[in-house]
Design a protein around this nucleic acid. Sequence first.
DNA 1: GAATGTATACTACCATACAAGTATACTAAT
DNA 2: ATTAGTATACTTGTATGGTAGTATACATTC
Lengths: 226, 226
Amino acid sequence: MNFELNKRPGNSIRDHIYQLLRENIMSLQMRPGLNISEKDISARLEVSRTPVREAFVKLAQEELLEIYPQKGTFVSLIDLGQVEEARFIREHLERATVVLACEKIDSESLLELESNLLTQQLCVQDKNYTKLFALDEDFHATIARGCGKSRVWSVIQQTNVHLNRIRILRLAANYNWDTILQQHREILNAIKEKDQEKADRVMKEHLTLVISEQEDLKKAYPEYFK
Amino acid sequence: MNFELNKRPGNSIRDHIYQLLRENIMSLQMRPGLNISEKDISARLEVSRTPVREAFVKLAQEELLEIYPQKGTFVSLIDLGQVEEARFIREHLERATVVLACEKIDSESLLELESNLLTQQLCVQDKNYTKLFALDEDFHATIARGCGKSRVWSVIQQTNVHLNRIRILRLAANYNWDTILQQHREILNAIKEKDQEKADRVMKEHLTLVISEQEDLKKAYPEYFK
DNA sequence: GAATGTATACTACCATACAAGTATACTAAT
DNA sequence: ATTAGTATACTTGTATGGTAGTATACATTC
């Protein structure tokens, strides 16, 4: 685990631990099913059990941890049913958002999208998939923010914790980033052309890709799934 | 406040307190802006501060409480921006869900919807608006559950904490329930007729109503809003 | 009278101790 | 060798005490 405290914003120890664990879980550095304990974490971070417990409560609320009283606490397994519903939520919220973006996105965000897309191309050439993942996230976040729906994006982020672990797994596999990039380009063009029908259609295709791969990933990493 | 412990399922004190506070906040029995403290609640419920704290952490995560370290903890004010985004999320997720329901709802749920609607009519006659509110919730939940998207409904519920307080406020005002009931009837008919276009259109109208009233409510109860 | 300093009574945060339930390894009896 | 029983080392849940930061009332100073 990547354990280092005292550097992040959000002044309480509880929030530090919360963010630290969250990132380690989402990035699969703490694998699904892993057994952790309050005592273990508190010893490793040299703090008391109390803030660790409170971080655990928050993570359990997001279904990233499962707490079994008197037994133990485990990093939650990936639930494909939950993944599909998250994908459903994301698809429909982002389609609605991109349609809205066609009529009222601000020029600043448009510029940011252009710049982002160029950087994405560089990353594909360098095969820097980790950075590409972050840029992918930013691309979608910027669209939402650009038309005044930043909270919609944070809801998507919250419900997508399981889906995101799938996407990280996919990074390991050889994945067709060219298609992704092409779709991003088409989405941006549609927004610029204010073509709502096209934006909706491309976004739908873009966010429907995932489905078929899920079962393959489950076969490749069976111990990570419920 | 309606404080009584030791009766609910969910065996931990923490969960009891969490649910108790959540209901009191959502129903406006604890008014927005109210200043509460760990010590206050723990004394009133005759438990220690620890489970109260942990319940506070969960409620803060849902933005029902705002915790200011060393200052105090307050029931969150209603944020109209957040309400509108919640409405946006609800509208688009429910439209997608009802369209799906047109092709794959199970017959059991259909029956439940029929029964629910009849009970709603009785409640309108009796002017039992509290029960009507619950039936309204059930109606929408049943549609989601009936086509295998129950988690979508729980996401809607989670994001809608602010929106729900608006809806409760609206109960006090004299509200046109006949329109609501008529729309529910049309939605159910559309599902039965498998008319996706009609279902989508009526659901959109149904969930767009709220917008105009929000500012009026803010004028009537200014101290409840941010 | 207005501004500043101080004592006091709050607050949430964190550390620690104990309680209660569970899993496991070991011992002892058959 | 197998099984039953027990001791022990875990786990999370809860209670409690001390710490540090904040608001407020009051006294002091200008």
